[in-house]
């Protein structure tokens, strides 16, 4: 008997490509928005790393939507627009995606506190990596206060970002189910 199942599968509609592309676009827009936030005197020189919150959340909950170059492209966009070190954030973001590949299963079984603790480690790692590379390449140590402020604000905003992203995700799922 000829297998006919494949003719009824929604192969084209189930493709992850459009979503993977959208994730990259949204991440880049968030990186641009980060730069926009710097226009606020409060965040001058140290904006929250919103793109990292987004990347972390997507890598944790939607691993199939995280393309191999997602972290790289979001990071490089951020580097090209606002940083002196092209590739520093991109490298750190690739590492984050890689780390999440390893840690995902454990984190998905844990509660929110575990996720937050993991995010603290990830954010500290990303900023510390940039700090070390920057200091080594410029042979000078930048002011520490903005660095600490940036980490602190990002960590404080993480739960808010997490809840917003989860809510939006649930809303999307509802729309998909009903349609």
């Amino acid at each position: 008997m000829t297998p006919r199942g494949r003719f009824f599968q929604k192969a084209e509609l189930d493709s992850n490509w459009p979503f993977q592309f959208l994730i990259i676009v949204f991440g880049v827009v968030l990186a641009m928005f980060e730069g926009g936030l710097a226009l606020w005197p409060v965040f001058y020189g140290a904006t929250p790393i919103l793109s990292l919150i987004f990347l972390f959340w997507v890598a944790l909950h939607h691993e199939k939507l995280v393309f191999l170059v997602t972290g790289f492209l979001i990071g490089i966009a951020s580097d090209l627009l606002f940083s002196d070190l092209i590739g520093a954030r991109a490298t750190a973001y690739i590492a984050v995606v890689f780390l999440m590949d390893i840690r995902r299963a454990k984190l998905q079984q844990g509660d929110f506190r575990d996720v937050w603790v993991e995010f603290v480690a990830v954010t500290t790692g990303v900023v510390l990596f940039q700090f070390l590379v920057f200091s080594a390449l410029n042979l000078a140590i930048p002011a520490i206060t903005p660095v600490l402020f940036q980490v602190g604000v990002t960590l404080i905003l993480f739960p808010i970002g997490y809840v917003i992203l989860t809510t939006v995700n649930m809303a999307f799922n509802r729309i998909r189910v009903s349609s």
């Binding site: 730069g35 710097a38 226009l39 140290a46 606002f82 002196d84 930048p142 660095v147």
Partner: peptide
């Protein structure tokens, strides 16, 4: 158009 957003570059 922009302002320095990161701690590693003031451009």
């Amino acid at each position: 158009v922009t302002a320095p957003g990161g701690a590693f570059a003031h451009t």
